[in-house]
């Protein structure tokens, strides 16, 4: 419903007589898609780009719904993000990590679901990923994500120290038009266990650690980008090993109002269940 409403709004926003506040003035796909944590970026990695199609004179926004089907779990995420003046991005996403029948094996009960709210903010510091083709440096942004998990008791039972936490990151994104390639590198300071779904900090390790996220995308045409991503994660909990994550993706922008991202994602071992890899699909609607 919200998606339909926003798409309708977006449709009128890109019309000729649109108020300048919503100009949808940036080029297709240049705002990235929505990450699983709601920020503008790839699927796993937050980028330095500000979400939406608004130029520095206007505001862009989108909603997204993301679904990841893993052998023993399901992850759903949906949220909304607004980009102000190609400078500041604010996002809210709710993640639902559904243990399905695995919940019973973990002693949590079948269908046990961890919910997590993520509020993100990102500020562009300098550089322009698109215009600065003649400069060596990328667009650089800093961001923070406040995450609050609703299963504090379980988090503590498995050795997690907190049910909420804040991630801080620096992201650098550069489009190499000459090669039709986009590269992103992000360093994230985090205590999150499995993105925060299993809480923050743990019995094994309880300090912030620096983790890396990288994306490389090749633009096949105006509408379609394919790429790979990697994201390292901390390993804070004694009861289950946490591993780095990877994905290969294709992002297709039908137009500035609708895009679909399909990926195959490998999240490694989650809560003692190994080899959690599967299909990822994400829809984004906005302007």
């Amino acid at each position: 419903m919200l998606v339909a409403g926003l798409t309708a709004l977006a449709g009128s926003a890109s019309a000729a007589d649109a108020p300048a506040l919503f100009d949808s003035g940036r080029l297709l796909l240049t705002g990235g898609v929505s990450t699983v944590e709601g920020s503008g970026g790839g699927g796993l990695a937050s980028w330095a780009t500000i979400t939406g199609y608004g130029t520095r004179d206007s505001v862009g926004a989108n909603v997204h719904g993301t679904y990841v089907n893993l052998p023993d779990y399901e992850l759903r995420a949906y949220g909304v993000a607004v980009g102000f003046y190609d400078r500041v991005e604010v996002s809210y996403t709710r993640q639902q990590f559904d243990t399905g029948s695995t919940g019973a094996k973990l002693g949590l009960g079948s269908g046990f679901t961890f919910d997590q709210d993520i509020v993100g903010v990102k500020v562009k510091l300098f550089g322009d990923a698109v215009y600065d083709q003649d400069r060596w440096y990328p667009q650089v942004s800093v961001g923070a994500q406040y995450k609050k998990n609703d299963k504090g008791a379980i988090v503590h039972a498995v050795g997690g120290k907190d049910d909420s936490g804040v991630d801080y990151y620096v992201a650098a994104t550069k489009l190499f038009l000459n090669q039709s390639v986009l590269l992103n590198g992000t360093v994230r300071l985090t205590k999150a266990n499995q993105f925060g779904l299993l809480g923050f900090g743990g019995d094994k390790h309880n300090d912030y650690s620096a983790q890396f996220e990288g994306s490389a995308a090749y633009l096949l045409n105006k509408h379609l980008a394919i790429g790979v991503e990697a994201r390292t994660k901390p390993d804070n909990l004694g009861f289950a090993k946490e591993q780095d994550s990877y994905d290969v993706f294709a992002a297709y922008a039908l137009n500035k109002n609708l895009s679909v991202t399909a990926a195959y994602v490998d999240l490694g071992s989650i809560a003692t269940f190994k080899d959690q890899h599967g299909f990822y699909i994400s829809l984004q609607a906005g302007f």
Partner: peptide, 19 residues
Amino acid sequence: MHRLTTLALGATLILAATG
């Protein structure tokens, strides 16, 4: 992996400083 992230952090900060 830790060395990689330190390296990446360093690189990002240098970019940030000189950019």
